[in-house]
Every structure is written in structure tokens, then in C-alpha cells.
Amino acid sequence: MRAFTVHSGLVAPMDRANVDTDLIIPKQFLKSIKRSGFGPNLFDELRYLDEGQPGEDCSKRPLNEEFPLNFPRYQGASVLLARENFGCGSSREHAPWALEDYGFRAIIAPSFADIFYNNCFKNGVLPIAIDEATVDRLFDEMYADEGYQLTIDLERQLVITPTGEEIPFDVDAFRRQCLLEGLDDIGLTLQRAEAIRAYEASARQKSPWLFDVIR
């Protein structure tokens, strides 16, 4: 996984509440057996006027000119500013894969759905939950300032605005460390194989019906 330490980038809006993962990446693209290539279909039903198909060349499709990500001023954005309960619904990890593949490194919103939030950390995308009033203010600043950029410092847990204002955010210690170092958490867990085996031996004694049934 790509490490995340400090990132500065152009900010783009997704200005609606309860954005679900079906909206982030519609179901027909979930038929892929690959982990990459979802970027052109991020927000497919909002970005394009037609119904997208897997494997289709999206450069030939009619764009929805009213969708902000299609505005010239937001091209190259890498920080997404969003509203409450972002990423609700389906557990599809294709959602953070699509965001990452498009070029987003961080998402700022008042709140996130639990599964999506967790999935982001596995893919080098940092979800940042900040109180609603502050998010409102960032939206206002972004709309008023073409080229509005934010800097995100994960080490110091700060979002830094163009005026130098520092907005602190919370992130749990384990996820932060994995992201800072780009760690493979399976490798980390396998270092604890002995503890897992010890648990398993005890569970086998206590609850033998849980073992060797499906074979």
C-alpha cells in the first residue's frame, strides 16, 4: 500500500449528504476481477449522461457538464470535500479503489459510513472526519477560491488551509501508523501467528462444533 504522510492538493466538492457506494461506483463495474482501472467510472451515473459499460472507452462518452468533477477548475483534484455519512451502503472496496484510481488521496466530510471508512485505510486513501460547521466553512472557502488547495499532514493530524489555519482531526493510532508507513497489515498479523494458534487451540477445546465441519 502507498504510504500517506503529507499531501497537498486541489480540492473538489461532492456536495450532497448520504453519498452511497452504488453512486461512487455502480454495480456493473463490480464484475471486474481486477483491483485497478475503476477511476474512469468513479461517480459514473453523475459524470456521464449515458449508462456506462465495463471495458468501455469513457473518453468517447457524453459528459454531464453540470457535474462539478467535470468543471475545468476541479481537474486534477486530489482532495474530496463531502457531506455527512459519505460512503454508506454496500461494502464494495471498489469505492475506495475508484477514488484512489481517479487520483483522490483524502476525503474530508463530517462523517463516514463504517465499512467504507475502514476500506479507505487499506488503500492509501485518508478519510478525515471534521465537525459539520468546519466542513461548511471549507465548502464556502473552496467555492470562493478557484484553485483552492488543502494540505493534509497525517503525522501531525492536521488539515492546513491556504491561510495557514490548522484544523486538527482524529484518527486511531493503528490505522494511522499503517498508513504513515504503508504497511501490509496481513504481514503484521502473521507476526502474531502464535497468539492466533493459541486462541484456536483453546476454542477447539471449548467449541469443537466450530471446527472441521465444512470440508
Partner: peptide, 23 residues
């Protein structure tokens, strides 16, 4: 019982565990 993403599917396959925070 709960849903997980694909990275965690792999984690469970490989380790029979998940790294979790208590709800």
C-alpha cells in the same frame, strides 16, 4: 456478523482474524 471489504476478505483468508476497533 458483519460485512467487510476485499482487503479484509484476504486478511481473513490469510490469518483467520481481523484487526478491529470495538463498537
Amino acid at each position: 456478523a458483519h460485512g467487510i471489504g476485499t482487503s479484509e476478505v484476504e486478511h481473513v483468508l490469510a490469518t483467520q482474524t481481523l484487526i478491529q476497533q470495538k463498537m
